[in-house]
Nucleic acid binder design. Structure first.
Lengths: 211, 211
DNA sequence: CGAAGAACTGAAGCTAGATTCATTTCTTGT
DNA sequence: ACAAGAAATGAATCTAGCTTCAGTTCTTCG
């Protein structure tokens, strides 16, 4: 016995693992899930292909972890916003704002992990997270309906529609326009206004009665 | 000179071309754009691989034509629905209903041509069509806003959101549920209701004033 | 320093699937 | 029936990208 893994090696290994994940996230951000190549991830992370395989069994395992990381973080943030003890309409707006704002800021990543189809195994993870995200919205909507401040509606369907609407606006055909920083605010404001009208039935930002 | 292409050959060639396109559409419907294989398309169309290449330069060219066909037809139908000379709210509902209803009925094709990422060249076609579709909605919305019957809003953004919301509901995580025929009506009705509230600001199907 | 055990390397192997093309089969006009 | 021109065939080729693994380098400890 002349070798035992020591703290400094552990640290390096951890750093390498992070570097690989960071490179993979960057690749996803730039080319989408399907545009990630093991070779370029390796180069980008400053290691060899073989090393990537030492840390992740398959390409799929790597992608799964990227999706898992990004989604968990996003959903957690949105869920936190949705948990504030104000009335449903405000919570809903806060959640939409959080989701949309972060999606814009994150560039293509958000799209890739929320919307882009992927190999079966990754897809499963992705769908699970997407459902979780929609569930956050659905919970708020259900509250609002129960409290009688939102019009009668199916919370799951409404939540799904909201997720779709926001994703489309952020990553869809308008995306290039959204990149112009000056327009970001406008697009976000419009998107929130639309979602609010759809779900709360209120025309104005300030809730209270019916309109 | 002992051979000149005759009408019967022309007809056969046309039939073969159609058979290939039909096979490709079927493949897209079953496995998505990325699941289309030249070999299986050939087999399915009852010709050899080489023949497929006689009719289409690349796989990409084949896919482009499939996307083109399907999208044009869909958009045309929706545009027609949107052109009826009734008031904006009714036209909007008709258009959403048409789009969503046909998307549900078409199964996976709709998803593939509306949402699925694809090689650059195909992507360009797909994005163009998606923009066209959104434009149909945007025109109605602009009319409604101009007439003062819809709340103030950016028609392009609103239209994009509507397309996203509908696509997500139809092809997203809820899709499996949508397949149960009993639920289709419910999902469609809910989707339309949400879109109506979002765009028209009216809670009720019957327009007139503000609510 | 030397041996033992890990970790790293990157060229080679493998695979799936698109694409080609020499050969064969069909069509037509004499 | 035959020659000429098209069209169809499908096995062979090519290619991109994941995956492996024999050899090399690094770490640790006696």
């Amino acid at each position: 016995m002349a070798y035992r893994r020591t703290a400094s090696v552990d640290a390096r290994i951890e750093r390498t693992r992070e570097a690989i994940l960071r490179a993979a996230r960057r690749a996803v951000a730039e080319h989408g899930l399907s545009g990630v190549g093991m070779a370029s991830v390796a180069t980008d992370a400053g290691v060899s292909v073989g090393t990537v395989y030492r840390y992740f069994d398959h390409k799929t395992a790597l992608l799964r972890e990227v999706v898992d990381d990004v989604c968990s973080r996003e959903i957690e943030v949105v869920a936190k916003l949705a948990a504030t003890p104000t009335d449903p309409a405000e919570r809903f707006v806060a959640a939409v704002d959080g989701f949309a704002g972060r999606a814009v800021a994150s560039g293509r990543v958000a799209y890739a992990v929320i919307a882009e189809p992927a190999p079966a195994e990754v897809e499963a993870t992705r769908v699970r997270h997407r459902r979780d995200l929609a569930a956050v919205f659905a919970a708020i909507i259900a509250d609002g309906v129960a409290a009688g401040v939102f019009p009668e509606q199916d919370p799951d369907i409404a939540a799904t529609a909201v997720v779709g609407a926001v994703s489309e606006v952020i990553v869809g055909p308008l995306a290039p326009a959204v990149r112009r920083p000056a327009d970001v605010e406008v697009v976000l404001a419009q998107t929130i206004a639309i979602a609010r009208r759809a779900v709360t039935g209120h025309l104005d930002p300030t809730p209270g009665g019916s309109r």
